[in-house]
């Protein structure tokens, strides 16, 4: 249970005295596979805004579509990307499985908006929307510079062929119910690019995991799907239709255009992927989203997580199928 007392205990080294040091504790909605709580640590009348991120479930077994990084590894990753100039929250303390609240970690709560609906529609983000695609390109180029040898050992490092094999196993495990997913996987096998580069990827870099203020990008959140791979993957993923939240005519997250994203990336990295490769990873993203939905159904059916949210996401499988058919038009 997440209580003020439990938080005060783990934050004792940071000055928490008792349950009264923890103010305004509340669970934030959004984030289907992770608990996120906001609260303030109050010392001498000064409130420090904090976030607790925890996963009460046992991490998914290997071979599932969603192989989330243990939160301890996520906590270790943030300082590494911060060193490269990627804006991320500051980690205060990591919580192991033996802690009452663990596994998880506590970090600074940055000011900004992460809800895609508001970022894409509110007038106060009009200027931010103009800069965001370019800022995303610059930020991705910086995070792709992290030295792979410094990464926590839990960060997955598979070849594309291995990941496609994993996707086939997932389709088999989930009962081969989707013809469109199989068609798309066959296409991904036949059209796999031979990557020239291999580096750390965020793995879930999209509208919804970006904290934004009136000027643009404030912080990159939710690093649980970080892994190593082709840098073009992070760029194509950001352009997946599912992450445009209805603003399909703005391919980058519903807020920007391809050329802005690629220009930002090129400026920092000195190169940028071509559009065919971006398209390939958009297809990969759409299939991945379908498998995430099916994984949620599996968690629901197995009883591991009997919440309505999980059951309902199962009906978003057809969104991935629709996106795949649209993406593959004239390319089959």
């Amino acid at each position: 249970m997440v209580t003020p007392l439990a938080l005060a205990e783990v934050l004792a080294p940071h000055g928490a005295e008792d349950a009264n040091s923890i103010h305004d504790l509340r669970r934030l909605s959004g984030g289907a596979n992770m608990e996120t709580w906001a609260f303030d640590l109050v010392q001498d009348g000064v409130a420090e805004p904090l976030i607790l991120r925890r996963s009460p479930l046992v991490p998914g077994e290997s071979g599932t579509a969603v192989s989330a990084l243990p939160l301890s590894a996520e906590a270790a990753l943030l300082p590494l990307v911060a060193e490269q100039g990627v804006p991320v929250p500051t980690v205060l303390c990591a919580l192991s499985e033996s802690d009452t609240l663990g596994p998880g970690y506590i970090m600074s709560r940055e000011r900004g908006e992460a809800l895609p609906g508001r970022i894409l529609a509110d007038d106060r983000y009009t200027a931010a929307r103009r800069h965001l695609a370019r800022q995303c390109g610059e930020t991705l180029a910086r995070l792709h510079r992290v030295n792979p040898e410094q990464l926590p050992r839990e960060v997955p490092n598979q070849t594309l062929a291995e990941r496609l094999d994993g996707h086939q196993r997932s389709l088999d495990r989930f009962g081969n119910a989707s013809l469109v997913h199989q068609l798309a996987l066959n296409w991904l096998r036949q059209h796999a690019p031979s990557p020239q580069r291999h580096c750390l990827l965020h793995g879930d870099f999209r509208n919804g995991n970006l904290l934004v203020d009136e000027q643009g990008l404030v912080a990159v959140l939710d690093w649980e799907l970080a892994h190593c791979g082709d840098p073009a993957e992070d760029l194509g993923y950001l352009c997946g239709n599912v992450w445009r939240f209805g603003y399909s005519d703005k391919p980058v997250g519903g807020f920007g255009d391809y050329d802005e994203l690629l220009a930002g990336y090129r400026e920092v990295a000195g190169w940028a992927p071509d559009m065919d490769t971006i398209h390939y990873w958009e297809v990969f993203c759409a299939l991945g989203w379908g498998l995430v939905c099916l994984t949620m159904v599996d968690l629901y059916r197995s009883g591991a997580d009997p919440t309505l949210e999980r059951a309902a996401v199962g009906r978003r499988v057809s969104e991935s199928e629709m996106d795949l058919l649209l993406l593959l038009e004239d390319r089959l």
Partner: peptide
């Protein structure tokens, strides 16, 4: 492919007729 398209259109009409891809399709 046409069969897959029609099937997905029909399924989408059940699951989420407001999805952006449904209108495009």
């Amino acid at each position: 492919i046409d069969y897959l398209r029609e099937r997905t259109l029909r399924q989408m009409a059940i699951d989420n007729p407001r999805y952006s891809g449904f209108k495009q399709a």
